[in-house]
Amino acid sequence: MAFRPEHEIHKRRFSRNLGVGLTLGAFILLVFALTVVKVTEEGKMKHNPDGTVVEGQ
């Protein structure tokens, strides 16, 4: 049995699903990269006994 030909509406739905999927993927990558940067920068900070935080190794 042959598949029914694809309607134009299916193409629109596919474009929407693909767009949402790629956007969410990009968002996840960005949050991951941001987390890595924040954690790395935090690691470079020096925590003093009085509670203050200064830059330093």
Partner: peptide, 13 residues
């Protein structure tokens, strides 16, 4: 026939 359905580009617009 179905009403016009939005594509991803319409949401970007």
């Amino acid at each position: 026939e179905q009403p016009e359905e939005a594509g991803f580009g319409d949401y970007v617009q």
